[in-house]
Simulated assay, not measured.
Amino acid sequence: MKSKKSITQSAVDTLGLEAAAILNVAKNINSDFEKVVSGILNCNGRVIVTGIGKSAIIAQKIVATFNSTGTPAIFMHAADAIHGDLGMIQQNDIVICLSKSGNTPEIKVLIPLLKTSGNILIGMVGELNSYLAQHADLILNTSVEKEACPHNLAPTTSTTAQLALGDALAICLLECRDFNESDFAKYHPGGALGKKLYLKAGDLALSNEKPHIKRSASVKEVLIEISKNRLGAVAVIDDENQILGVITDGDIRRMLENYTTIENLKAEDIMGKSPKSIQFDALAVEALEIIRQNNITQLLVLQQNTYFGIIHLHDLLKEGIV
């Protein structure tokens, strides 16, 4: 009786086969790939990505990556295309068709219709002698030696190759367009990722109270201001709203340790004179980096040279920036 591999060995073998498939796809990058990138860059329409079965699922992921990185794209299921969805394709669109075999019935019906409409057809295909490869204007070769499936049936390495090549296309297009973080933020306004790209320090500070005192304030006034605003800190400012220092919960503890009597102490006696700060229009993620590097929990926010507010580590946690 044939002995079974361990679970660990099976997983390692699968990943090894899929890694090898990606490396093999990399060897197949040629002038057609460059023409595909150039064609999409110069396209006045959209990229229509189609496929069937597991290839259709990969096509949807490629569309999502294209759209999020500045390349307008639409998914069209190959089976639905021949039942009405062909109407979504416009004259200037480019079509990318994904198929391992390139010979499925739906693909064979779809391709002549695409050729009739005059759209550029790109075949991301694993079989270079297939119907799709023979009729495509450009070919993206995703040939694999074998599937990771021990029966060589379930699409595994072949879909991994498609996915990786789709990512390569998206990144090449991104770099050719000089698509930067600001552009990325436009397409990802929601969630923690979007917030890291657009949320400003001032946005967080505006949600908080603005605790402040003068340098001559008593310890009692300091304690009241800190407790009232629940940020664990208070800014010490002058008459021009410029920051002279900051007093935190930690400064209060150190005061109690260092002084026998506190009745005559003033804010200026216990404040930290070199507080960490950030400009109000800096990204919140930059504030997080300052907080981490300095092992602090509060950060003063400035507008030019004047006091704007305070950010607490909890604000960043609440927004999912951490």
Rank of each mutant, 00 (worst) to 15 (best):
L206T: 13
L256I: 14
N152L: 09
S117L: 14
D80W: 06
V301T: 05
L128D: 03
G232H: 01
N103G: 06
N294G: 08
F280R: 14
K5Y: 08
A287E: 02
K115R: 15
I321S: 03
N264P: 00
I171T: 13
L128E: 09
Q304W: 09
A205I: 10
G102L: 07
H188T: 08
L197Q: 04
A287G: 15
G309W: 05
S182C: 04
Q279D: 14
E147H: 05
I262V: 15
N305W: 04
S101Y: 02
D13L: 11
L244I: 09
D251F: 06
V36Q: 03
D13S: 13
N264Q: 10
I82V: 15
T50W: 07
S3H: 10
N295I: 07
F33N: 02
L244P: 00
D13F: 02
I252Q: 05
Q293M: 12
K318E: 14
A78Q: 03
F308N: 07
N119I: 12
I57W: 09
S207G: 11
N44D: 14
A56V: 00
I96L: 12
C43G: 10
S158W: 01
V222E: 00
D13P: 02
A205H: 05
Q304M: 13
N92Q: 15
D85P: 02
L317Q: 15
S143C: 10
P189Y: 05
Y307A: 05
S130C: 05
V322E: 13
N103R: 06
L288C: 06
M76K: 10
I171Y: 04
P275Q: 07
I291R: 00
I107K: 03
D183L: 02
E147G: 06
D239Y: 06
I270L: 07
E257M: 14
E18M: 12
T8Y: 15
N28F: 10
I82M: 13
I224F: 03
Q279A: 15
D203E: 12
N42C: 08
Q293I: 07
G245E: 06
P211H: 01
I243Y: 06
I311H: 06
V12E: 08
E319T: 06
I310P: 01
F184H: 04
K27Q: 14
D251G: 06
N305P: 00
D178M: 13
A233K: 04
V246F: 00
A185H: 00
D203R: 02
M1S: 12
A217D: 00
E263L: 12
H135R: 14
L193T: 10
R253S: 06
L23G: 08
A161V: 05
V236W: 00
L98Y: 03
T104K: 06
E257G: 09
N141K: 04
I252W: 01
S227V: 02
G70V: 09
A170G: 12
L163V: 02
R292C: 11
E221P: 00
V109G: 13
P155S: 01
T142A: 07
K5V: 08
A267R: 09
Q134F: 08
L165M: 14
F184R: 02
I107L: 11
E209T: 13
K61C: 07
G190T: 07
S274L: 14
I82D: 09
N42I: 01
I171V: 15
F184N: 04
L138S: 03
Y259K: 02
H212P: 00
I252C: 10
L299R: 09
E18P: 04
H312T: 09
N241R: 12
A81S: 14
